[in-house]
Design a protein around this nucleic acid. Structure first.
Lengths: 199, 199, 199, 199
DNA sequence: CTCTAACCGAGACGGTACGTCTCGTCTTTTG
DNA sequence: CAAAAGACGAGACGTACCGTCTCGGTTAGAG
């Protein structure tokens, strides 16, 4: 999904215009910010980018794909995960960055992308591969090291633990029944690590 | 949202047809099951129910609203929460029911409804009031009693704890990166209650 | 077409409400004046008259029927034809009255009624019976007397002569290619009586 | 109104499909013949022509416009006016052609078009420019020559004379109070030229 | 002085067409 | 030969009136 820069030796014919690719991504990102996913129709993207619809269809299969690429293009984040040796500190630092991002426009757009993905399997696939997976890989490393340090029990399943940590966050992003705050993250991490039972 | 049965004494004019209301809900539910939310267009609902589009618009503001009412109509569940006195048992029982429901067609439809709600605030509101809230109220009571019994620490925020328990579940429903299994629920509850730190 | 006051001895049951009948005619006439025939929908007439649609359908078969009755109700004219003994004077007098009426709102409405009658045979019938015919009968008498007086040739067909006099007038009303003026009527009558050939 | 064949050098983009244009006109003409103007709805035209409604709206502003173009397309007539040097002969020849056309389906449709034009100014405009005007121009020339020949009085207004000749004809077409026959035309022309007064 | 038939309001309802929107494809010309 | 321009078929959208159909409440003459 999304246009990959061709690794092949220059194929014959006119090469793809990088200017056009960027115009599309910028236009889409602008539309996403201004009116959400609903505003980023193929027609409006083409019009805004000064590009033909066909050109977009040539390189992206669906409007969701363009949107997600535009999202990454605009919000290309460092994706750095701290690894200080103290699990709680690492988690609260990383989660704070994420929550700060999700409280703004980027959060609304991500929520809409997740929403759209419910009826667009290709988009769902892209979201998993390009968004979720890289983050889960980084997190896996951090949690693995915490297990190795003896901080976390070794019988804990890392995928389950990751869902315990990030599931509640995405749940609030999407269900909006409670606000996404740092305090929430703090208690969430604390509870997750220590449990909630009376000692 | 959705038509409430009038409690008022019969108002003037022809009364609303219960037959029509049911035909709409059944038709919509059928369409949801057959082809998901995308298949439940206003046109197809009207055609299948043998009903005029205007009649649907008269009583429901959007296609999402009809869908959600149809969903509740078809999957009107007991919404019973066990309250045995043992928190783990109660949670695993309740969550198993939920997971069993979400692993079938009902789960796909719920995921699509949540998806649609990302770009339809009215639908989002309905989902919160008619789906989430009642369940959270039941759960609140159970957790409250666990605190009173001294099973759970009294400084734990119940909303946060509920998100710890159900957030990961909805996350897997929506992101589909890992399967929704009873084993997952089991470890999730266990971890949540006891924590993951090495003792 | 249109409600006739029942000549029968009072039938059992509640008698028809004269108030309602008038409310409908007044409301329709108002709507005709304000927005033409297009504005006088059954819905708007019912709403404006504070009357149920069914009541209207009870007494009139179509919207055109109501409109035409409302037109006659509002513009009930004397329908007097002068009969001075001089044909030209009589014609110019009568035609001036008609042109003056047709140059205002009444003319626009009549044009729309004629228009509607092209796709509503019942309305067409009513227009002929209630509007055209009475006028043609009056005119026939006047022309008949002109023939008897020896003013007009006795081999002239009266219906044809009437169409020569009034056809051009309705043509301008409906085609609007030239204005409806007294000067037009004057030359029309003069030409018709004397012919246009060089003597 | 209606699509004009572009005189411009080929503009960029996909050119308009002539096949589609013709399909629309043929479908509309068929519908007009089969069921009159009422049958020629945008939906039925689109369905019959195998064309999208949007495509029709792209090129015609209203259903009346399509209908009138379809009418001209189907009944593209010679529009020739004889000019033999004898006014009566020319008029009776031309009027006979017209009456023969108007006595068939074409007359009904024209009447409906005139009817529709009473509540559709754009359509009215088109009727005047594309139907009435060309005919009046031809007639003007013939009458002008009759005046020059000294056959007709030079103080007669040509527009008024044209309304005297064709007004009665359209009046009968639209009011249907008397039949449209050649005999009618004959007496109409004779009366108009010679007058009806006793000499 | 009730009974009862018809009238009337309110408004739900199935239906048809409207005019608009976006999608994804197709067909030209331009650079 | 890629890209732009834009025509096109498809099909859902939400709205407007149509004409019909219950309802409950009313109104006047008949019994």
């Amino acid at each position: 999904m999304g246009p990959e820069k061709s690794k092949e030796k220059s194929r014959s014919g006119r090469p793809r215009s990088e200017k056009t690719r960027l115009a599309i991504l910028e236009a889409t990102a602008d539309l996403l910010v201004e009116g959400g996913l609903g505003a980023a129709t193929m027609e409006s993207i083409a019009a805004r980018a000064g590009v033909s619809k066909v050109t977009i269809y040539k390189w992206w299969p669906s409007r969701g794909s363009v949107a997600i690429d535009a999202y990454f293009h605009r919000y290309r984040e460092t994706l750095n995960f701290p690894d200080s040796g103290n699990l709680f500190d690492d988690l609260i630092t990383q989660m704070s960055i994420m929550i700060n991002a999700f409280r703004g426009r980027a959060g609304e757009i991500m929520a809409e992308l997740i929403g759209q993905a419910q009826s667009d399997t290709a988009l769902a696939q892209t979201l998993r591969t390009k968004w979720l997976q890289p983050r889960r890989e980084k997190t896996t490393i951090v949690l693995q090291r915490a297990i190795e340090r003896g901080e976390v029990r070794s019988d804990v399943s890392i995928p389950v633990l990751m869902d315990q940590l990030y599931g509640p966050l995405y749940f609030r992003l999407v269900a909006r029944h409670e606000p996404l705050t740092i305090e929430f993250a703090d208690e969430l991490i604390r509870n997750t690590l220590q449990g909630v039972l009376q000692e």
